[in-house]
Design a protein around this nucleic acid. Structure first.
Lengths: 187, 187
DNA sequence: CGTATTTTTTATCATTTGTAAAATTTTCCT
DNA sequence: AGGAAAATTTTACAAATGATAAAAAATACG
């Protein structure tokens, strides 16, 4: 997906503001398996996915939980670094070879102070991510694991094809063994 | 909590921008039990809590889930109405008599287009809500129900005193019976 | 192509959480 | 204060999910 479309999907920008942002955006590719963002670091870049798929996961003592998948057109970001300039809680791993657009947070922050259209673009970006996160938080509680799987299968069939089931299970909030049971039932 | 402090806690605004916002803010009180925002409506106001406590809950076929508590200094908002101008998924119920500051969304949206400091204030507001929501989504998965209860007890003791346990249980993602079992253990 | 590695499935048993209903306590109202 | 209503706790049982181990299948790679 091209950068113009990605920026516009978040919030339509006047051409002048868009070309200002684009001055600070560069393209970069990394191979499958690369860790793009790290939980222990204050990250200084955000990325937009041109091609490929990534996952965000957080670790506690004994287990690892995948809580986000990003694909073409999605933004990859350590929200904690971006918002609070603090270490995040997530690693981001590339699940395929990826082509990315990179933007330094610092440059974006400066644009927020100077260009009101870009400030509102940043506002819309946060608002949209917020809606998505809030919906996930709420609707997870309303559905059983099986229903959540079927919903993912219906709305994001490609995700299930492109991502290994252990990560999907974690994203759904169940064990891989449970997911396997569900799949046997649903078939 | 006074409106100046509430606005500033989100993001420090220059005096000029703050007085512009304050022109559009009025005070209003409602009694315990009042439904401030409704799921079936596109809401046209947002509120800041001067005094009192509220809960947001969503309904599905058979059950109701509380997913947010707001108290002094917090913002009460139908995020779906505010962001997308669509019906939300939540009702907001006042759990005590409340004193509120009211701001019409439409007025705020107009200020976003004209005043860059206010646009960045709106951006920061969404970003901070996003961080809070994301943390809840992630860390819920890492802790057992008992750990989540103890955490709430430690960090929000007043909430447990001010809110009935059925709502607390729902917020923690468990049944009231489960919470009762946990409380018997923890005591 | 064949072997090693990774991923997925299956089976068993233990634990957690839910459902339903009754008992108890607290709150509210006159 | 007294009684009704609401909230909370307790109990017994059922269902869902987790943990563990091992087998089967798919994939990677020399």
């Amino acid at each position: 997906m091209e950068i113009d479309q990605i920026l516009n999907n978040i919030y339509p920008l006047p051409e002048s503001s868009k070309s200002v942002i684009k001055k600070y955006i560069s393209e970069i590719s990394y191979p499958k398996g690369h860790i793009l963002l790290r939980a222990e670091k204050i990250e200084t870049s955000i990325y937009f996915i041109k091609k490929g798929i990534v996952r965000a996961y957080a670790n506690s003592a004994d287990n690892e939980i995948t809580f986000f998948f990003g694909k073409e057109g999605d933004t990859v970001i350590s929200m904690k670094s971006y918002v609070a300039n603090e270490k995040g809680y997530e690693d981001i791993e590339l699940l395929e070879n990826c082509d990315l657009y990179e933007l330094k947070t610092q440059n974006l922050q400066q644009l927020f102070e100077k260009d009101i259209a870009i400030a509102n673009w940043g506002r819309k970006f946060a608002e949209q991510e917020l809606i998505k996160t809030e919906e996930r938080l709420i609707f997870r509680e309303f559905r059983t694991a099986k229903e959540r799987y079927i919903e993912l299968l219906t709305n994001n069939a490609d995700l299930i094809k492109r991502v290994q089931l252990g990560h999907i299970a974690s994203y759904l909030g169940i064990t891989q063994v449970s997911l396997s049971r569900i799949r046997a039932e649903v078939k």
